[in-house]
């Protein structure tokens, strides 16, 4: 019975992937891509990886989807006079993508079976971190360097988006509110955020011991903030606002500070002192959740469009 479900899931995923590629309208393709993210999340659940599933649905489906939709809305109507891609160009892209897909397929098929795994080692050392979720232990203790760089990449992406602002509105606020805010949207923006904030904080807090964590929680918080800004209940902040900059950089800064203190008080860079691992990790996660939320919301809000209020 579950085999039937898995086969159906795989068939859906393949069909949707093909649909996204051959779809002519950009918007329909993006909406299909959103659905693809959700289905891929289900596939990760079937593979018993709820942490990956949550991240896939939050970032891969929701976050990327809304970024693409907003980009499409900005680009719509523009660039129509541009020449369409030549046949040779299309062929080159198709061959490149096919080669990468085939290479990835070969790599996956040539894995040793059973695949080499570090899972027993990860589970064994879990006691030393005081955490209950091995995924969080990997992300914030064993492979903390990757996580640190990951969060900094998000900030770099945001700097890239912000630098698209023209000189006149530099340091100003982005614009996300539509010209007419529909009543139901305002209603949702008043009702939903209290629940969303509780759910976001819960996802971060439970991340230490169960599936959940900074990216998932940050996405939920970012969505709530965006909802409030889109309904016009609270305008987006100026991009140079100190409080915003503090929220954005606070997480990575605290992470880095604790990492360097590790080489004084513990065994080295990014090492935690014995017994203090869990409180430090939870503190880093709290600050990172805020940073991720602020960065994702600002990424979606886009570059500044209004002159800064002075």
């Amino acid at each position: 019975m579950t085999l039937l479900l898995d086969l159906a899931l795989v068939a859906w995923l393949l069909a949707l992937a093909v649909h996204v590629v051959v779809q002519r309208g950009e918007r329909s393709a993006i909406i299909a891509f959103l659905a693809f993210g959700l289905l891929l999340g289900l596939a990760w659940v079937r593979l018993a990886a709820p942490d990956v599933a949550l991240t896939e649905i939050a970032i891969g489906g929701g976050g990327t989807g809304i970024l693409l939709l907003r980009a499409e809305a900005v680009l719509r109507g523009r660039g129509k006079e541009e020449e369409p891609m030549t046949r040779a160009g299309k062929l080159a892209v198709a061959v490149g993508c096919a080669a990468i897909s085939a290479g990835l397929g070969l790599a996956v098929l040539s894995f040793a079976s059973p695949a080499p795994t570090l899972a027993p080692a990860a589970a064994e050392a879990l006691g030393a971190t005081g955490l209950g979720n091995p995924v969080t232990a990997v992300l914030l203790a064993y492979r903390a360097l990757d996580t640190l760089l990951e969060k900094i990449v998000v900030l770099l992406a945001l700097i890239g988006v912000w630098s698209l602002a023209p000189d006149g509105v530099w340091d100003g606020a982005p614009e996300v509110k539509p010209a007419i805010v529909p009543g139901p949207l305002t209603y949702l923006a008043r009702i939903l955020p209290p629940f969303g904030i509780v759910i976001g904080v819960y996802m971060f807090w439970v991340g230490a011991d169960a599936p959940g964590g900074t990216f998932q929680a940050g996405t939920v918080l970012a969505a709530m903030w965006l909802l409030v800004m889109m309904a016009g209940l609270k305008p987006p902040p100026d991009t140079s606002r100190p409080l915003l900059v503090l929220a954005l950089t606070g997480g990575p800064a605290l992470f880095l500070a604790i990492a360097f203190l590790g080489s004084i008080f513990a065994e080295g860079f990014l090492a935690y002192p014995e017994g203090l691992a869990k409180p430090l990790i939870v503190a880093i996660e709290a600050a990172l959740t805020l940073s991720v939320a602020a960065a994702l919301a600002m990424l979606v809000a886009g570059p500044a469009r209004k002159a800064p209020a002075r």
């Binding site: 529909p182 009543g183 139901p184 949207l185 949702l188 009702i191 939903l192 629940f195």
Partner: peptide, 20 residues
């Protein structure tokens, strides 16, 4: 139950926005 209520809220809002 919370999942159901939240799905109701978002579905109702999305329907209203689409209908509008």
């Amino acid at each position: 139950i919370c999942v159901w209520l939240l799905a109701q809220l978002s579905a109702a809002t999305a329907s209203q926005l689409l209908g509008r």
